[in-house]
Simulated assay, not measured.
Amino acid sequence: MNIDDIDIIKYSGEKVKFSLDKLRVSLKRTGADDTIINQILDKVRDELYQGISTKEIYNRAFALLKKDKRCFASKYKLKKALYELGPTGFPFEHFVSAVLNYSGYKTEVGKILQGKCVSHEIDVIAHKNSESTLIECKFHSEQGLNCNVKIPLYINSRYQDVKANWNKNSKDNAALTKGWVVTNTRFTKDALQYGSCCGLYLLSWDFPSNNGLKDRIDRLGLYPITVSTLLNQREKQFLLSRSIVLCRDLINDKFYLDHLGVSETRKKKILNEISQLCA
Protein backbone atom coordinates (compact mmCIF):
# COMPACT_ATOMS: atom_id res chain seq x y z
CA MET A 1 0.00 0.00 0.00
CA ASN A 2 1.21 3.52 -0.84
CA ILE A 3 1.97 5.38 2.42
CA ASP A 4 0.21 8.46 1.03
CA ASP A 5 -3.05 6.46 1.16
CA ILE A 6 -2.71 5.51 4.84
CA ASP A 7 -5.11 7.20 7.25
CA ILE A 8 -3.92 7.79 10.81
CA ILE A 9 -6.04 8.63 13.85
CA LYS A 10 -5.08 11.71 15.89
CA TYR A 11 -5.61 12.05 19.67
CA SER A 12 -8.75 14.09 18.96
CA GLY A 13 -10.20 11.19 16.95
CA GLU A 14 -9.74 13.06 13.68
CA LYS A 15 -8.63 10.99 10.69
CA VAL A 16 -5.82 12.46 8.55
CA LYS A 17 -3.38 11.23 5.91
CA PHE A 18 0.00 10.05 7.16
CA SER A 19 2.85 12.47 6.35
CA LEU A 20 6.40 11.17 6.28
CA ASP A 21 7.64 14.77 5.98
CA LYS A 22 5.93 15.81 9.24
CA LEU A 23 7.51 12.88 11.06
CA ARG A 24 10.89 13.78 9.56
CA VAL A 25 10.57 17.39 10.78
CA SER A 26 9.66 16.29 14.33
CA LEU A 27 12.66 13.93 14.40
CA LYS A 28 14.96 16.60 12.96
CA ARG A 29 14.07 18.92 15.85
CA THR A 30 15.68 16.48 18.32
CA GLY A 31 19.14 17.05 16.87
CA ALA A 32 19.43 13.51 15.49
CA ASP A 33 21.43 13.25 12.27
CA ASP A 34 20.02 12.20 8.90
CA THR A 35 21.34 8.64 9.19
CA ILE A 36 19.46 8.00 12.44
CA ILE A 37 16.35 9.79 11.14
CA ASN A 38 16.27 7.75 7.93
CA GLN A 39 16.69 4.49 9.87
CA ILE A 40 13.72 5.40 12.09
CA LEU A 41 11.59 6.49 9.12
CA ASP A 42 12.29 3.18 7.36
CA LYS A 43 11.24 1.16 10.42
CA VAL A 44 8.10 3.22 11.07
CA ARG A 45 7.15 3.03 7.38
CA ASP A 46 7.40 -0.76 7.47
CA GLU A 47 5.06 -0.95 10.47
CA LEU A 48 2.32 1.38 9.18
CA TYR A 49 -1.19 0.08 8.68
CA GLN A 50 -4.57 1.59 7.86
CA GLY A 51 -6.01 3.38 10.90
CA ILE A 52 -2.84 3.39 13.01
CA SER A 53 -2.93 6.00 15.78
CA THR A 54 -0.52 8.90 16.12
CA LYS A 55 0.17 7.54 19.62
CA GLU A 56 1.47 4.25 18.19
CA ILE A 57 3.68 6.08 15.69
CA TYR A 58 5.01 8.35 18.44
CA ASN A 59 5.73 5.43 20.80
CA ARG A 60 7.67 3.57 18.09
CA ALA A 61 9.76 6.59 17.08
CA PHE A 62 10.38 7.47 20.74
CA ALA A 63 11.60 3.96 21.56
CA LEU A 64 13.99 3.97 18.59
CA LEU A 65 15.39 7.39 19.54
CA LYS A 66 15.86 6.38 23.17
CA LYS A 67 17.74 3.30 22.05
CA ASP A 68 20.17 5.49 20.14
CA LYS A 69 20.53 8.52 22.45
CA ARG A 70 18.36 9.50 25.42
CA CYS A 71 18.61 13.27 24.93
CA PHE A 72 17.12 12.86 21.42
CA ALA A 73 14.19 10.98 22.94
CA SER A 74 13.79 13.64 25.64
CA LYS A 75 13.48 16.40 23.03
CA TYR A 76 11.09 14.27 20.98
CA LYS A 77 8.75 13.87 23.96
CA LEU A 78 8.57 17.63 24.64
CA LYS A 79 4.90 17.94 23.69
CA LYS A 80 3.95 14.99 25.90
CA ALA A 81 6.16 16.38 28.68
CA LEU A 82 4.13 19.60 28.77
CA TYR A 83 0.97 17.53 29.40
CA GLU A 84 2.81 15.82 32.27
CA LEU A 85 3.14 19.17 34.07
CA GLY A 86 -0.36 18.46 35.43
CA PRO A 87 -2.70 17.34 36.79
CA THR A 88 -3.17 20.93 38.02
CA GLY A 89 -2.15 23.96 35.97
CA PHE A 90 0.14 25.28 38.70
CA PRO A 91 3.44 23.77 37.43
CA PHE A 92 2.63 25.00 33.91
CA GLU A 93 2.23 28.56 35.24
CA HIS A 94 5.66 28.29 36.88
CA PHE A 95 7.08 26.86 33.67
CA VAL A 96 5.74 29.80 31.61
CA SER A 97 7.13 32.18 34.24
CA ALA A 98 10.56 30.52 34.03
CA VAL A 99 10.65 30.73 30.22
CA LEU A 100 9.83 34.45 30.43
CA ASN A 101 12.52 35.01 33.09
CA TYR A 102 15.14 33.68 30.69
CA SER A 103 13.76 36.07 28.04
CA GLY A 104 14.50 39.10 30.23
CA TYR A 105 11.20 39.50 32.10
CA LYS A 106 10.73 39.78 35.85
CA THR A 107 7.70 37.73 36.79
CA GLU A 108 5.20 37.20 39.59
CA VAL A 109 2.97 34.11 39.82
CA GLY A 110 -0.55 33.86 41.27
CA LYS A 111 -0.95 37.47 42.30
CA ILE A 112 -4.39 38.97 43.02
CA LEU A 113 -5.10 42.29 41.32
CA GLN A 114 -8.08 44.56 41.83
CA GLY A 115 -10.05 45.36 38.70
CA LYS A 116 -12.55 48.15 38.25
CA CYS A 117 -15.41 45.73 39.04
CA VAL A 118 -13.93 42.69 40.84
CA SER A 119 -10.57 41.25 41.91
CA HIS A 120 -8.73 38.72 39.76
CA GLU A 121 -6.04 36.12 40.47
CA ILE A 122 -3.56 36.49 37.62
CA ASP A 123 -1.48 33.44 36.66
CA VAL A 124 1.66 35.37 35.67
CA ILE A 125 2.50 39.08 35.66
CA ALA A 126 5.59 39.92 33.58
CA HIS A 127 7.55 43.18 33.77
CA LYS A 128 10.08 44.45 31.22
CA ASN A 129 11.23 47.92 30.10
CA SER A 130 8.72 49.76 32.32
CA GLU A 131 5.86 47.77 30.79
CA SER A 132 3.72 45.07 32.38
CA THR A 133 1.91 42.12 30.82
CA LEU A 134 -0.90 40.02 32.29
CA ILE A 135 -0.65 36.35 31.33
CA GLU A 136 -3.30 33.69 31.73
CA CYS A 137 -2.24 30.05 31.31
CA LYS A 138 -4.72 27.48 30.00
CA PHE A 139 -3.36 24.03 30.76
CA HIS A 140 -4.81 20.81 29.35
CA SER A 141 -3.67 17.45 30.71
CA GLU A 142 -5.25 15.52 27.80
CA GLN A 143 -4.07 15.64 24.21
CA GLY A 144 -6.60 16.61 21.55
CA LEU A 145 -8.24 19.38 23.64
CA ASN A 146 -7.82 22.82 22.08
CA CYS A 147 -8.68 26.31 23.35
CA ASN A 148 -11.81 27.62 21.68
CA VAL A 149 -12.91 31.25 21.29
CA LYS A 150 -14.53 31.30 24.75
CA ILE A 151 -11.07 31.33 26.37
CA PRO A 152 -9.73 34.59 24.84
CA LEU A 153 -13.21 36.16 25.17
CA TYR A 154 -13.20 35.48 28.91
CA ILE A 155 -9.57 36.48 29.45
CA ASN A 156 -9.90 39.70 27.47
CA SER A 157 -12.77 40.78 29.73
CA ARG A 158 -10.61 40.14 32.82
CA TYR A 159 -7.69 42.00 31.26
CA GLN A 160 -9.86 45.02 30.44
CA ASP A 161 -11.26 45.09 34.00
CA VAL A 162 -7.76 45.06 35.53
CA LYS A 163 -6.49 47.62 33.03
CA ALA A 164 -9.32 50.01 33.94
CA ASN A 165 -8.03 50.04 37.53
CA TRP A 166 -4.30 49.63 36.80
CA ASN A 167 -3.08 53.21 37.25
CA LYS A 168 -4.14 53.23 40.90
CA ASN A 169 -2.00 50.16 41.66
CA SER A 170 0.87 50.32 39.16
CA LYS A 171 4.45 50.03 40.41
CA ASP A 172 7.15 52.46 39.24
CA ASN A 173 4.68 53.90 36.73
CA ALA A 174 4.85 50.70 34.67
CA ALA A 175 2.23 50.76 31.95
CA LEU A 176 -0.04 47.77 31.44
CA THR A 177 0.41 47.22 27.74
CA LYS A 178 -0.57 43.66 26.90
CA GLY A 179 -2.66 40.66 27.79
CA TRP A 180 -1.49 37.15 26.88
CA VAL A 181 -3.07 33.72 26.75
CA VAL A 182 -0.64 30.79 26.85
CA THR A 183 -1.67 27.16 26.33
CA ASN A 184 0.20 23.88 26.04
CA THR A 185 -2.19 22.80 23.27
CA ARG A 186 -3.52 24.80 20.30
CA PHE A 187 -6.09 27.53 19.64
CA THR A 188 -9.03 27.08 17.31
CA LYS A 189 -9.30 29.28 14.21
CA ASP A 190 -11.98 31.46 15.87
CA ALA A 191 -9.84 31.89 18.99
CA LEU A 192 -6.88 33.05 16.89
CA GLN A 193 -9.10 35.41 14.92
CA TYR A 194 -10.59 36.94 18.08
CA GLY A 195 -7.18 37.27 19.77
CA SER A 196 -5.80 39.10 16.74
CA CYS A 197 -8.86 41.37 16.54
CA CYS A 198 -8.96 42.39 20.23
CA GLY A 199 -5.19 42.67 20.68
CA LEU A 200 -4.53 39.68 22.93
CA TYR A 201 -1.21 37.91 22.34
CA LEU A 202 -1.79 34.18 21.92
CA LEU A 203 1.00 31.66 22.53
CA SER A 204 0.50 27.93 21.99
CA TRP A 205 2.49 24.81 21.18
CA ASP A 206 3.10 25.95 17.59
CA PHE A 207 1.76 29.53 17.41
CA PRO A 208 2.99 32.09 16.46
CA SER A 209 4.79 30.38 13.61
CA ASN A 210 8.47 29.81 14.47
CA ASN A 211 7.95 31.42 17.87
CA GLY A 212 5.55 29.05 19.61
CA LEU A 213 6.29 27.29 22.90
CA LYS A 214 8.22 24.47 21.23
CA ASP A 215 10.42 26.97 19.35
CA ARG A 216 11.14 29.06 22.46
CA ILE A 217 11.96 25.97 24.54
CA ASP A 218 14.32 24.53 21.92
CA ARG A 219 15.96 27.90 21.30
CA LEU A 220 16.62 28.62 24.99
CA GLY A 221 17.19 25.02 26.10
CA LEU A 222 14.47 25.45 28.74
CA TYR A 223 13.15 21.90 28.89
CA PRO A 224 10.65 20.96 31.60
CA ILE A 225 11.82 18.31 34.07
CA THR A 226 9.10 16.03 32.71
CA VAL A 227 11.07 15.40 29.48
CA SER A 228 13.48 13.15 31.40
CA THR A 229 13.37 9.53 30.26
CA LEU A 230 15.13 8.38 33.43
CA LEU A 231 13.01 9.97 36.18
CA ASN A 232 9.81 8.11 37.02
CA GLN A 233 6.41 9.75 37.53
CA ARG A 234 6.67 9.83 41.34
CA GLU A 235 10.06 11.52 41.18
CA LYS A 236 8.85 14.10 38.68
CA GLN A 237 5.86 14.99 40.86
CA PHE A 238 8.14 15.30 43.90
CA LEU A 239 10.38 17.75 42.03
CA LEU A 240 7.45 19.74 40.62
CA SER A 241 5.98 20.07 44.12
CA ARG A 242 9.24 21.72 45.15
CA SER A 243 9.21 24.16 42.21
CA ILE A 244 11.86 22.25 40.25
CA VAL A 245 10.18 22.83 36.88
CA LEU A 246 13.14 23.13 34.49
CA CYS A 247 15.89 20.58 33.88
CA ARG A 248 18.47 23.29 34.59
CA ASP A 249 16.82 23.84 38.01
CA LEU A 250 17.73 20.26 38.93
CA ILE A 251 21.34 20.79 37.85
CA ASN A 252 21.53 23.65 40.37
CA ASP A 253 19.60 21.75 43.08
CA LYS A 254 20.80 18.18 42.55
CA PHE A 255 20.50 17.47 46.31
CA TYR A 256 16.80 16.76 45.65
CA LEU A 257 17.91 13.50 44.01
CA ASP A 258 19.47 12.54 47.35
CA HIS A 259 16.13 13.25 49.07
CA LEU A 260 14.55 10.83 46.59
CA GLY A 261 17.08 8.14 47.47
CA VAL A 262 18.50 7.98 43.93
CA SER A 263 21.67 5.90 43.74
CA GLU A 264 24.94 7.57 42.72
CA THR A 265 25.08 5.60 39.46
CA ARG A 266 21.53 6.55 38.46
CA LYS A 267 22.04 10.12 39.67
CA LYS A 268 25.02 10.46 37.33
CA LYS A 269 22.96 9.19 34.38
CA ILE A 270 20.06 11.57 35.15
CA LEU A 271 22.34 14.61 35.45
CA ASN A 272 24.17 13.62 32.26
CA GLU A 273 20.87 13.37 30.38
CA ILE A 274 19.58 16.77 31.45
CA SER A 275 23.01 18.44 31.05
CA GLN A 276 23.00 17.42 27.38
CA LEU A 277 19.51 18.94 27.02
CA CYS A 278 20.56 22.25 28.56
CA ALA A 279 23.82 22.52 26.63
Results as ranks from 00 to 15, higher is better:
residue 32 A to T: 10
residue 41 L to A: 05
residue 256 Y to S: 00
residue 242 R to W: 01
residue 246 L to Y: 03
residue 92 F to D: 02
residue 100 L to A: 07
residue 124 V to P: 01
residue 266 R to A: 14
residue 118 V to Q: 08
residue 156 N to M: 00
residue 225 I to M: 12
residue 279 A to N: 14
residue 89 G to I: 09
residue 174 A to I: 07
residue 91 P to N: 04
residue 135 I to Q: 10
residue 9 I to D: 03
residue 221 G to T: 09
residue 100 L to F: 14
residue 118 V to R: 09
residue 92 F to Q: 04
residue 29 R to W: 09
residue 12 S to G: 13
residue 270 I to W: 12
residue 263 S to Y: 13
residue 277 L to I: 08
residue 145 L to Y: 12
residue 173 N to V: 12
residue 34 D to F: 07
residue 39 Q to K: 12
residue 14 E to G: 13
residue 53 S to Y: 04
residue 226 T to M: 06
residue 68 D to W: 05
residue 214 K to N: 04
residue 128 K to L: 14
residue 237 Q to D: 02
residue 238 F to C: 00
residue 259 H to Y: 10
residue 208 P to F: 10
residue 12 S to Y: 12
residue 14 E to A: 15
residue 220 L to E: 01
residue 92 F to T: 08
residue 221 G to C: 05
residue 167 N to I: 08
residue 162 V to G: 04
residue 88 T to F: 11
residue 177 T to W: 12
residue 14 E to Q: 13
residue 106 K to G: 00
residue 149 V to D: 06
residue 128 K to M: 12
residue 77 K to Y: 07
residue 59 N to L: 02
residue 167 N to M: 04
residue 77 K to P: 02
residue 9 I to K: 05
residue 91 P to D: 02
residue 78 L to P: 09
residue 123 D to Q: 12
residue 216 R to L: 10
residue 235 E to I: 06
residue 4 D to P: 05
residue 152 P to W: 03
residue 84 E to N: 10
residue 159 Y to N: 02
residue 192 L to W: 06
residue 91 P to A: 08
residue 92 F to R: 01
residue 219 R to V: 01
residue 46 D to Y: 13
residue 266 R to H: 15
residue 207 F to C: 08
residue 162 V to P: 04
residue 274 I to F: 06
residue 113 L to M: 11
residue 125 I to P: 11
residue 23 L to K: 13
residue 122 I to R: 04
residue 168 K to H: 11
residue 141 S to K: 15
residue 154 Y to H: 00
residue 245 V to S: 04
residue 181 V to C: 01
residue 63 A to L: 02
residue 55 K to V: 08
residue 13 G to M: 13
residue 210 N to A: 12
residue 147 C to S: 10
residue 104 G to S: 04
residue 38 N to I: 11
residue 260 L to V: 12
residue 90 F to D: 14
residue 278 C to W: 06
residue 179 G to P: 04
residue 233 Q to E: 11
residue 213 L to I: 11
residue 118 V to N: 05
residue 186 R to S: 09
residue 74 S to E: 08
residue 43 K to E: 13
residue 103 S to G: 10
residue 262 V to T: 15
residue 217 I to L: 00
residue 78 L to E: 09
residue 112 I to H: 11
residue 252 N to T: 07
residue 26 S to G: 06
residue 157 S to I: 00
residue 116 K to W: 00
residue 230 L to A: 13
residue 30 T to I: 06
residue 243 S to V: 01
residue 146 N to F: 13
residue 240 L to D: 00
residue 106 K to W: 07
residue 75 K to T: 06
residue 26 S to Y: 07
residue 275 S to K: 15
residue 119 S to D: 14
residue 116 K to L: 07
residue 247 C to R: 12
residue 22 K to G: 10
residue 242 R to C: 01
